[in-house]
Design a binder for these strands. Structure first.
Length: 758
DNA sequence: GAAGCACTACTTTTT
DNA sequence: GTAGTGCTTC
């Protein structure tokens, strides 16, 4: 029975078979963290532990799915399927479906993703008549989310002197009111946001001892992956669940903690020994993933951080190739050089596309990479960015599903009622929502009977509204009768959404129809597999309701399709955590980009940024290439950039001489996205703006940049008159800082910005 | 009430 | 460069 344990090294083995009591595993990158978790689950099962008694919490759905597959393979028994294995959010969502009624939630509650939740915040800010520049929905959402992650309720928020004074000095004292009203609205819509899934689980376990006891009895064995990235709420929930059995195993690496910005607390790792004084600690330090050079570079970088748990990551692997360094002239140039390097490597060594990954700090950087890869016909797949599930047409369709299942979902009403246009406009909706608010009831109630809530509407509008509610009710009936796919198809057609986009008859419209069909396909797949893939033991018939229970928690990474297998991977470093690739390119290593400009002011932020770099470095198995550009198109402007400080933190002996921007001839001529054939679609819109700063103003005559002096009065075609504050750089890189009246300082690259001396 | 156009803010990272 | 918002016109 223990045969599979032979695959483990001594430490891994020890950590795996220590199945009882509190255990912490600190593992360096590539040291087999996931392996230990997987084998622990398999080991428990092989010892006869009931799979229903095991809870394994991961960070992504993908990690959970893969672990489940591997466990089943290891023990050769499908019983492994019954382990509760999933993300914190999905497992807690499931618990709340079952027991959330104790807190007053129906089991068909809606889950609002960050988009939906931000929409609601924005709406409230507007209703409260606040300035949405001061009270930016982003900022307010972030504050609310941070409060929830720390289990601070609206009441506690409003009574916490520290929080209040922080908000006051940010001149946003009303956030406490927004928070309060936001939560009331969510509750009234029978909806929870991501943070509520944690917060409410915590409340459930705190207020209902019997329920807590039920789950303590159920989850005799608890395993937590990526423990360094848990927040306070997650920490306390786990602690409660484990309080009885104390069979808890957490696995993590403080050096890979990269989610402090959303409330993750490395302190949870340090606290473990206080909570469980007789815990066993295992350290996995042998890296099996990367070459010596890569491990060495990563170790060097991380020593620049002060806060860290001491450990020595080492490897027995080959020394490997030195780290490549690419210096590009611009972001587009960087794309070309990286794509060429991939092309060369691939051809010389006969490698598949999937051996390569390009990692970046921000999603916006993918564009230049995409264009370059497309030029060379290298297939690629982008993860993240504008995710499939956040596209408008997908949100629209999902909103219909949500409303069908949960009529109280106000956001879903707002999204669907006039898409496609039904002649129910803003004014009408305002009246209805005011009435709902005044009578303290749901929008749906009012829609069903506007007269009894004294809403003044003409008969025509009333007919339109009742047609809409009848439609939604008919959908609800369909959902009862049909499986998820049939019901979804019916809704897509009968709602008129599909027709609306089809009739647009534009490339975008066609694309949107295709996307909706893709969603329907996903639902079909779900229906065919029944609820089996549904990360748990909910045995169902594959109804639309079941599909919707998980969909808001899905991300792009969760859609692995056959045809996507042999492609170069493009993703942010955050998304790459936990993954590995033979050949890795880390691009955009520039000051203010990586490290990000918003992360260079405090040590804590900078260290998180450095850990992010550490994560990036350690994704590589065989070869690593770093790159940076000397200028970059950002905020619709060219900016000059400097190489990242992180580059200096790697011993230069490990790095190859920079591969120069060797783009042959054609000195400064930029290929400027004129790739033939690739983008007919955007051509129409692009041709207007293509003449960046030049052609639009053919009458505007610029002065020779060389003639400009500090202090001169100049005029810009767009910004008007201003005064040169400073000049720097030489020749084509000459840059001016100009103060424009009523606009402020602008940094202009004189190669592009046309200035005329007044 | 709907469609079209111009303006603005945004880009850190995600369940 | 983009998406969302708000203004204007029909």
């Amino acid at each position: 029975m223990e045969s599979f344990l032979e695959h483990l090294n001594k430490e891994q083995h020890a950590a795996t078979v220590q199945s009882e009591g509190p255990v912490m595993v600190i593992a360096g990158a590539g040291a087999g963290k996931t392996r230990v978790l997987t084998y622990r689950v398999a080991y428990l099962l092989s010892k006869g532990v009931d799979p229903f008694n095991i809870l394994a919490l991961t960070f992504t759905n993908k990690a959970a799915r893969e672990m489940k597959e591997r466990v089943i393979n290891l023990i050769g028994d499908a019983e492994g399927r019954n382990v509760w294995m999933g993300t914190f959010h999905s497992i807690f969502a499931k618990i709340l479906r079952i027991d959330g009624h104790l807190l007053g939630y129906p089991s068909n509650y809606s889950i609002y993703d960050s988009d939906d939740s931000k929409r609601l915040v924005r709406l409230i800010i507007k209703e409260m008549d606040l300035d949405n520049k001061l009270y930016s929905p982003n900022y307010v959402s972030h504050r609310i989310s941070a409060a929830k992650s720390n289990l601070v309720s609206p009441v506690e928020y409003a009574n916490d002197p520290d929080i209040l004074s922080a908000d006051e000095s940010a001149r946003k004292p009303l956030i406490k009111d927004i928070y309060k009203s936001y939560n009331e609205r969510l509750k009234r819509a029978d909806a929870m946001d991501f943070d509520d899934l944690l917060f409410n689980t915590f409340l459930l376990f705190s207020q209902f001892g019997e329920t807590l006891y039920k789950y303590q009895q159920k989850f005799r064995y608890i395993l937590v992956d990526e423990y360094q990235d848990t927040n306070h709420a997650q920490y306390l929930i786990i602690k409660k669940l484990a309080a009885n059995s104390e069979n808890i195993c957490v696995v993590g690496d403080d050096a890979q903690s990269i989610y402090a910005f959303r409330g993750a607390n490395i302190g949870n790792m340090l606290n473990f020994k206080n909570d469980y004084p007789d815990y066993k600690l295992f350290k996995l330090e042998q890296n099996y993933r990367s070459t010596k050079i890569i491990v060495e570079a990563a170790n060097q970088v991380i020593t620049y951080n002060k806060d860290q748990i001491k450990k020595t990551v080492w490897t027995d692997n080959d020394r490997g190739a030195s780290i490549g360094l690419i210096r590009a002239r611009s972001d587009n140039d960087e794309g070309d050089l990286v794509a060429n390097a991939i092309f060369e490597k691939k051809m010389n060594n006969q490698l598949p596309n999937y051996a390569f990954a390009i990692l970046y700090r921000t999603n916006a950087q993918s564009r230049s990479m995409e264009e370059a890869l497309r030029k060379l016909n290298i297939p690629y797949r982008i993860y993240g960015g504008l995710s499939f599930y956040s596209r408008k047409e997908i949100k629209d369709l999902l909103a219909y599903f949500r409303l069908t299942i949960n009529h109280n979902d106000e956001d879903a009403v707002q999204r669907t009622i006039n898409t496609p246009a039904r002649g129910i406009g803003k004014t009408t909706m305002e009246k209805l929502s005011v009435a709902a608010h005044e009578h303290n009831t749901t929008l749906w109630e009012v829609l069903n009977n506007p007269l009894s809530f004294q809403v003044q509407l003409n008969t025509g509008t009333r007919t339109k509204i009742s047609a809409f509610t009848t439609l939604i009710k008919s959908f609800a009936a369909e959902v009862q009768k049909k499986d998820a796919f049939e019901a979804a198809k019916h809704i897509a057609n009968a709602s008129g959404l599909l027709r609306m986009y089809r009739e647009e008859d534009t490339p975008e419209g066609i694309n949107r129809v295709e996307n909706m069909e893709e969603l329907l396909n996903a639902i079909k797949e779900f229906t065919e597999k029944g609820a089996e893939q549904n990360a748990g033991d909910l045995q169902g018939q594959g109804s639309l309701e079941e599909f919707m229970q998980n969909v808001s928690l899905l991300t792009d990474t969760d859609n692995d399709k056959e045809e996507d297998r042999d492609k170069v991977t493009l993703m942010t470093i955050h998304a790459a955590k936990g993954l590995e690739f033979p050949y890795v390119f880390i691009v955009g290593l520039e000051e203010n980009l990586f490290p990000s400009i918003q992360a260079i002011n405090t040590r804590a932020d900078l260290e998180e940024e450095r850990r992010l770099f550490y994560v990036a470095l350690t994704r590589a198995e065989k070869m690593l290439t770093l790159s940076y550009a000397e200028s970059r198109f950002r905020w619709g402007q060219f900016t000059l950039t400097e190489p990242s400080r992180f580059l200096d933190e790697i011993d230069e002996q490990l790095i190859d001489k920079p591969r120069k921007a060797a783009t042959q001839k054609a000195g400064g001529k930029r290929a400027e996205s004129q790739s033939p054939g690739s983008n007919y679609r955007s051509l129409k819109t692009k041709s207007h703006t293509a003449g960046k700063g030049g052609t639009n103003h053919s009458t505007f005559e610029a002065s020779d940049p060389a003639a400009l002096q500090t202090g001169m009065e100049v005029e810009h075609s767009k910004f008007g008159k201003g005064k040169i504050i400073a000049l720097e750089g030489q020749g084509p890189n000459k840059k001016a800082t100009v103060f424009f009246n009523g606009i402020g300082n602008k940094n202009l690259l004189l190669r592009f910005a046309k200035l005329r001396i007044v």
